[in-house]
């Protein structure tokens, strides 16, 4: 007799409705922020360039926090893992500030 490989017994758990609701709420927040970004883009005049840029940057960081925290679940991982990922981001901020200032200096020098 050939050995018959039995299919594994799988117990399917019922959907976690509270968790699923929270995920849809996160999606809704992301979409609302994107819509607000559109409103800002077409209501605040281009003359206020600095204000526009800062509003966009802050809203982008809020969106990124929701994606990384909720969708990627980083908020609920151990603190050690969370900071291992977040602390190196300092280098990106440093690089950003340094390079944009450098770019402005190049623009003046031209």
């Amino acid at each position: 007799m050939a050995h018959h490989h039995a299919e594994p017994q799988v117990t399917v758990l019922p959907p976690d409705t509270a968790k699923i609701k929270k995920l849809w709420m996160t999606a809704l927040i992301l979409l609302v922020i994107t819509v607000v970004e559109f409103i800002v883009a077409f209501t605040i005049p281009h003359e206020y360039k600095d204000a526009r840029v800062w509003i966009f940057v802050i809203m982008t960081i809020v969106k990124a926090a929701y994606i990384v925290g909720e969708f990627m679940h980083l908020k609920y991982e151990t603190k050690f893992l969370m900071w291992s990922i977040l602390i190196p981001i300092i280098f990106i901020v440093w690089m950003l500030v340094a390079f944009v200032y450098e770019g402005m200096a190049i623009g003046v020098a031209r």
Binding site: V10, V12, L13, P15, D16, K19, L23, F71
Partner: peptide, 16 residues
């Protein structure tokens, strides 16, 4: 991205 995270949630429950 939402549908992906719902797939992950379903995976936790072994809901193929």
């Amino acid at each position: 991205s939402v549908t992906m995270v719902l797939a992950v949630e379903a995976g936790h429950r072994m809901d193929r």
